[in-house]
Design a protein around this nucleic acid. Structure first.
Lengths: 105, 105
DNA sequence: AGTGTATATAACCTGACGGTTATATAAGGT
DNA sequence: ACCTTATATAACCGTCAGGTTATATACACT
């Protein structure tokens, strides 16, 4: 599953939002999502792993998950193409508004 | 459908990639995706509309679609949270590498 | 060795997504 | 008025994603 699809799911985004604050064992994530079952969380983690968004480290019986930032650069690169466009548009909007202000003076 | 899900589909991303180059009537988009039918394209456009990623303007029988940059800022804002994290990590990697270089000298 | 703890996998179900064909809507041209 | 063009909607279908329960795996503890 690609990065975009992996990040499209709100539960997985919430998981990443937790992991950005620091690495966590799978159990912590299970506890953080009481609405869904342990296997469901485990499956989400597999998706994130396959997308390269997280990595796992084994510690005793625990699997410690940590965020893998590199994978998000792909997403960022895609958006970057549009940034030029939207900054232009927002600039244009701003110019339009300030012109309107001048007229209204 | 939210922005993330809208952008998760590769066909819709390709559509946005076209629209970033300038507004286009729906027909042009239909022509640009010969692999899928006209109704399929129309449905994708509806999803993009509902997500606020594009806007429509009526011109005779044509519907002219144009990119709506504002909606992508939501996505960008989400990624921004992670940028700090990954620049830290990449910096750390860089420091590690340059240290190694010094040792190897 | 046997039990408990932590996590992953298997098998299954349901709903939604992306596709299709057929049809409706609406504006233009003749 | 009628036909054509452009696009959207309706109805339907197969696949897959996300959920479940039940079970396997693997390490730790006594």
């Amino acid at each position: 599953m690609d990065t975009f699809t992996a990040v499209a799911d709100p539960t997985r985004r919430a998981m990443l939002d937790l992991l950005v604050k620091g690495e966590r064992p799978a159990g912590d994530l299970v506890a953080a999502f009481p609405a869904i079952s342990q296997p469901a969380v485990s499956k989400h983690l597999r998706v994130l792993r396959n997308a390269g968004l997280v990595s796992v480290r084994v510690h005793a019986q625990q699997r410690i998950y940590s965020l893998q930032p590199k994978a998000l650069t792909e997403l960022d690169a895609w958006i970057a193409k549009y940034k030029v466009f939207w900054s232009e548009r927002l600039d244009a909007l701003e110019r339009h508004l300030s012109k309107k202000e001048e007229i209204e003076k």
